[in-house]
Structures are given as structure tokens and as C-alpha cells.
Nucleic acid binder design. Structure first.
Lengths: 367, 367
DNA sequence: TGATAATGTGAAAGCGCTTACAGGTACAAA
DNA sequence: TTTGTACCTGTAAGCGCTTTCACATTATCA
């Protein structure tokens, strides 16, 4: 059977409390006694029971991270940032991969309620919005990435927010395209209705506005996948992106540029472009989101909107730990970090033909 | 304060035991009472305390996964396989990213001893070999991926093993190269001394043997990174690979093919090749390990040894859960799954010049 | 009809820790 | 000497569940 602190106490001829003190280096214990107890612990091979400790102290020093998939370098790098700070603070990470499945997300959120998690970092969209709201209002320590809750006003609570500057990201990406003469741009979204998508869309529209162009739907073909679409399968996102891209290419041959917001969709988009005989960037320009090591080695080297996602992860983890350890409620400032466009070779000037077509559309006015 | 089962019991006018029975659907409880208690729980917003439950039952339904980095599609896909089966069985995943750092690995292993983890799946190399041995002998439920322990003979315990057929992988990869006339092959390893590396090396040597070639060190330049080399930094593996590749290219200009066992190194290798003016595959052929969605879109499309890693993950998780839930000790059979070479365009026939050079080396004999 | 089994409920003893609280000693300051 | 304070250790009451055991009550079957 397993050795308990009580047995250590008996063998060392001290009380349980003293053993606890040496384990936790808390309170006073005389040096001689301490080392005697440590010897006994070593002899007995004593290992403290973490569950008992968790119960007694009311916390576990583990936090949950909710993401949609590790297939995106965005989430990978985010996770790394988070783990690197957690590790330094003695926290552990419980990973929840929702695959856009609300049930899975709910399941992990429940762990927070059940006291098994001290806090949670959420990097996903809007699947379980109401539950999140509820948790925030109940003052659970939470940090949200690229997401805000308008419903929560100035009520103090223990939620924090860290974001990339998504408006800026959308704007800069579209600007780059606009400058190269692109007018008909298709956008492949991640989950619908997410804060992130709204902000990016706003940024994209700003870019159009700044170019004196009215960004009617014809000029910006946004495709969002329905919630809960993706399964366990290795490449459902990619497959979805493939068929959506094919669809766009056929129904909107005037599209000369594609923005891919969710990295796992990239391979599907590229495959579709290849199958449709539309070379990148000669025929269609492409911008990906999130930098990854092999981006310079794609054919063509991929122009990418790089979010400072490692830093976002670190900021999120720091904020969460701080919120966990400080019982004070407050209304928290949102931390915002700027992304950067890394220009490579997947964007080229729009072919004059399509350029003209876009401008024609543009000049035809609308009611 | 938080609602406890005791309060539910009082309000419902029943005993604590009965409340516990309805929570766990265990034992007998009359239908009417059950629904009354459920109503009370709902009214009170009762959520059971998981730490108390963990303490009382002695298990947590969470398992640990130890990997080196999420930057490799190998570990990503592995993690997905594991999570997909765990999720179905009601287990949660605690993720440990060692970054080849023994301290971090030890830390998570400790959670197993402390009872916070019901079991652990280890997919890393040899950093904490002795501790692993210890844990196995103490009959903790563990599953090892691509790793075996010769030290454990026929002693029954609760460890399991699942492996890709690494010998086969090494053999097939080298065979492919040999057939194209390559004779001087460089290999970039992951962590030194791992079971996986030994097996692959064995396979590679088999391939040479089958071609009637003696695979002296001159013909197979293996480079292993020292343990603990890699840090937090985004691309230490890549940087290491870059300088090693540069080094090889200079000191062994006769090398015409490179095998990259650890995916995060790939970008470094490709950058070095590019900087050294050695085009792939015209000058140097390249084989990567582990398939990933963008492999067909690299320049050139990458030939890759694809391990059935999702299946490996599933098998590992199934094995672990089974070992957790079945207290019987046994000596376990190793599950072996075959990889597959996916041929694309990063391997071309060796240039005759180097081919000749390789053969000359070969024919010069050795003492 | 009585014996046996199945069903339903409660009391209470843990699970293995932490943490007041109380009490004791030693030593410096007053 | 007294008092105050730092230092040291133990007692015991939890933390919030699960689970055994005992005891009722009801159904089942010769």
C-alpha cells in the first residue's frame, strides 16, 4: 500500500502537522527535526497525495486550455507560450481540443466548476457563449484570447482578455492586396460569429474604405464554416476549404486573391487552386494567417499575417495566474498585441483583366 | 460559498449517501426520490467537488502525455489520436511538453506518483530512463511509444508499448535513396540514444546490406543532437539543424541525400540547402519523417516517411485506459504499426559525379 | 404463507492532507 | 523579574466526497 504522511509521522515520532510543515516548508520546524523527517520520508519512499492536498487547500495548480485544434501553428505556438510561463509558476496544463464541438468544450469547463481546474484559458470562438458568460459572472478565473464579451460591462470579475490587433490584421492584409490591384477578394473564415472574425472583417472593410472603395459583398466573399462542422478526421477542415475554394473559383471567377484565416484550411485551398489550374500567385494571390517555419519553403513562399501568438500565450498565462492568486475582483484591461505582415511571394499584382472587371463592378454603382 | 452534497441532502431531507448515489447512478434509489434530489441539485446549482471525489475514489480520470514539442506534426497527430479515444472514455489529458528538458519530464512523472494522474503515455526519448524504469516496476499504468526497456524482462507490470515499425521505416527510406543511386547519406536524428533512433539506424543498415553495400560511417553521417539542447525558443531545433547541415555540406560534399527524422528540423535543413546553393532534389535529395498537410505544397513536394501516428495514438490510449481499469498485472505484447513511404519530388537520382565518388569510397575497401 | 432475494435508505468511517489554535520554550528588552 | 516576541510542536477539526454495513421494506417463488 501507499505510504502516507501519517506513517511518516509515526516512524519519525512527530505529529502529522510537523510532517506537513516540512513537506510544504511552511511554518517553523527545527532544522534537526526537519532533516530527520526528510530522512524518514526518503526511507519510506513517501510521496504526498496530491488529491488530498487539492481537497484540503481548495486548489490544484492546474489550468485548462481550450483550443479547437493543434493542427494550426497558431494554437501550437500559443500553447507553448502558455506552458512556458505556467511551468515557471508550478502550474500544469490540461489540454482541451474541441474540434469545434461544444460538448467537448462544456466538458472541460465543467472541470473548472468541479474545482479540478484553478482557471481556464479559452482560445476558441462562440460555441458555448452563455456558459462562458455564466462562469465569468461567477467569478471563475478565466482568460479569453481574441474574444470579448459585450454582455459583461463594468462588473468586476476575474476574467481577463488578451488579443491580437485583429482589426489591424484584417486591414493590413487587405491593404496589401488592394495595393496590388486586387478588388475581388475571397476570405475563408474560421468558426462563424466569432469576435475574431468580426474584428478582422471590420479591418478589411476599413482598408477598402481607405482606398475609397465601397466593400460590397461582391468584392469580399466571406465564407464561414458552420459550427460543429469538423470531426475527428485528419483533414475535414482542409476538405471543407477545398470544396469552398472550388465553389468560389467557379461562381466568382473574378476573384484574384484569397485570405485564409484558419491555417488547417490552407492545404485544401492550395489543392483546389492547383486542381483548378489557377497558379499562385500568377492567377490567384494568397495570404495565410499565422507564421510557421515552413512558410518560406512552400511553393510559392507564403505571404503571411503573423500574430505575436507566443507572446499572446505568455500574456494570457501570466494574466490567468495573477487572477487565480489574487482573490480581488476587478474589471480588467484588455491586452492588445500587434501582428505583422510577412511579405513573401504568394501575392502578385492582380491580372489587368480581373482588375478591370473589379473596377467595372465598382463603378456600376449600387442602389 | 460553494454548495456541497451535504446541503443538497439536508434540503432534500435525505442522507448524504443517497445524494451520492444519485450523482453516480450507483446503488439503488427510488425513482421519485431520485428526481426530487435532482430537482434540489438543480435549484441549488450543485456541482460535485472533483477533488473530494478523486481523494475518495483514488483515481482522477486524467492521464498525462509526455512529448517533446508540439511543433512536430508527429506529436500533434499523436495527441489527437490519444485525445479522441480518451474523450470517448471520459478521461482528460494533461499535456507535458518537455522540450528535451528532463526536469520538466520528471515534474509530470511526479504527478503520477502523487495520484493526480491515473496513468501516463510517454512519447519521448531517454531523458529520465531510470525514473521510468522505477515507475514501471512500481506498476504504475504507463504506455510507451516507440520505446522499449530491455531492463524489464518478463516481470509482469502495467506498462504497455506501441511502436511504429521503425526498422522498416529506416530500411525503406534508405532503400529508396539507394535505388536512386545515393551512396553518401546524412541523417539528422532527434534525441540521442533513443530506442527509436537505434531501430531506425538498424533498418538503414539493413538496407545497405541488402544492396550489398557495407554501411561504414563514411556512408551514413548520423548527427544526433545532445540531450537538453533545445530551449524555449521557437526555432532552436531548426537553428541546430541549419548549422549541422551547413557543417555536413562543407565537410562532406559527397553527401547527396539527407534524412530528417525530427520534423522541426526540416526548415533549418531546407534553409541551409538554399543558402549553400544546393537545390533539392537536383543536388541533394531529401526525405522527411511524418506526413503533414502541406508536404505536397513544399518546394519541392516532400517525400516523406509517414507513420500511422494517429493510430499509434489511439492504440496507446486504448492500452493505457485498459491498464488503468484492469488491476491485473501482465507482461504486455508490443503493438507494432507499419509506416508508409509517400513518394513525391524531393528525391531524385544522385548526380553521377557523386554517385561515382560514393562508389569509389566503397571500392577502396577498409581495414 | 413463510423464506429468500431484491430494493431502498441512513449512519458513520474513511480518503490523506492542511491549518487554525493552543501550548510550550527560549531569549531579548524593559 | 516580567513581559513580549519569535520559535517550535502537537491536537483536532475540517476539506467534500465514497462506500461499507446494517437495517427496512417490498417483491418473488415454492
Amino acid at each position: 500500500m501507499r505510504i502516507t504522511a501519517k506513517q511518516v509521522a509515526e516512524k519519525a515520532g512527530v505529529s502529522l502537522a510537523t510532517v506537513s510543515r516540512v513537506i510544504n516548508r511552511s511554518g517553523y520546524v527545527e532544522a534537526g527535526l526537519r532533516s530527520r523527517i526528510e530522512t524518514v520520508m526518503a526511507e519510506l519512499g513517501y510521496v504526498p497525495n496530491r488529491n488530498a492536498k487539492n481537497l484540503a487547500t481548495g486548489h490544484t495548480r492546474t489550468v485548462g486550455l481550450i483550443i479547437t485544434s493543434l493542427r494550426s501553428p497558431y494554437f501550437v505556438r500559443l500553447t507553448e507560450g502558455i506552458q512556458d510561463v505556467l511551468e515557471g509558476k508550478g502550474y500544469h496544463l490540461l489540454l482541451c481540443n474541441t474540434k469545434f464541438n461544444a460538448k467537448i468544450e462544456l466538458d472541460d469547463l465543467q472541470l473548472l466548476r468541479e474545482g479540478m481546474l484553478d482557471g481556464v484559458i479559452t482560445a476558441t470562438g462562440s460555441l458555448t457563449h452563455d456558459v462562458m458568460l455564466d462562469l465569468i459572472r461567477q467569478n471563475y478565473p478565466m482568460v479569453f484570447i481574441n474574444r470579448i464579451f459585450e454582455e459583461i460591462g463594468e462588473e468586476p470579475n476575474r476574467a481577463g482578455y488578451v488579443m491580437g490587433d485583429l482589426v489591424y490584421a484584417g486591414k493590413v492584409a487587405v491593404n496589401h492586396l488592394l495595393q496590388q490591384g486586387h478588388r475581388n477578394i475571397a476570405v475563408l473564415y474560421g468558426a462563424a460569429n466569432s469576435t475574431a472574425n468580426k474584428l478582422r472583417l471590420a479591418g478589411m472593410q476599413q482598408a477598402f474604405a481607405e482606398h475609397g472603395i465601397d466593400s460590397r459583398p461582391e468584392l469580399l466573399h466571406c465564407v464561414q464554416h458552420p459550427p460543429g462542422l469538423f470531426g475527428v478526421d485528419s483533414d475535414t477542415e482542409s476538405n471543407w476549404a477545398y470544396s469552398e475554394t472550388m465553389e468560389i473559383l467557379q461562381s466568382h471567377p473574378e476573384v484574384t486573391a484569397i485570405l485564409v484565416f484558419y491555417h488547417p484550411m490552407l492545404s485544401g485551398v492550395m489543392q483546389a487552386l492547383r486542381d483548378a489550374g489557377r497558379p499562385v500567385p500568377e492567377s490567384v494571390s494568397l495570404i495565410g494567417f499565422d507564421e510557421f517555419p515552413l512558410a518560406p519553403f512552400l511553393d510559392p513562399p507564403l505571404t503571411v499575417m503573423a500574430q505575436p501568438v507566443y507572446e499572446i500565450g505568455r500574456a494570457a498565462a501570466r494574466a490567468l495566474v495573477q487572477k487565480i492568486e489574487d482573490p480581488t475582483l476587478s474589471v480588467s484591461k484588455t491586452i492588445i498585441l500587434k501582428p505583422k505582415l510577412i511579405i513573401r511571394q504568394s501575392v502578385a499584382p492582380a491580372s489587368p483583366k480581373y482588375r478591370a472587371q473589379g473596377d467595372r463592378l465598382l463603378n456600376s454603382g449600387h442602389k
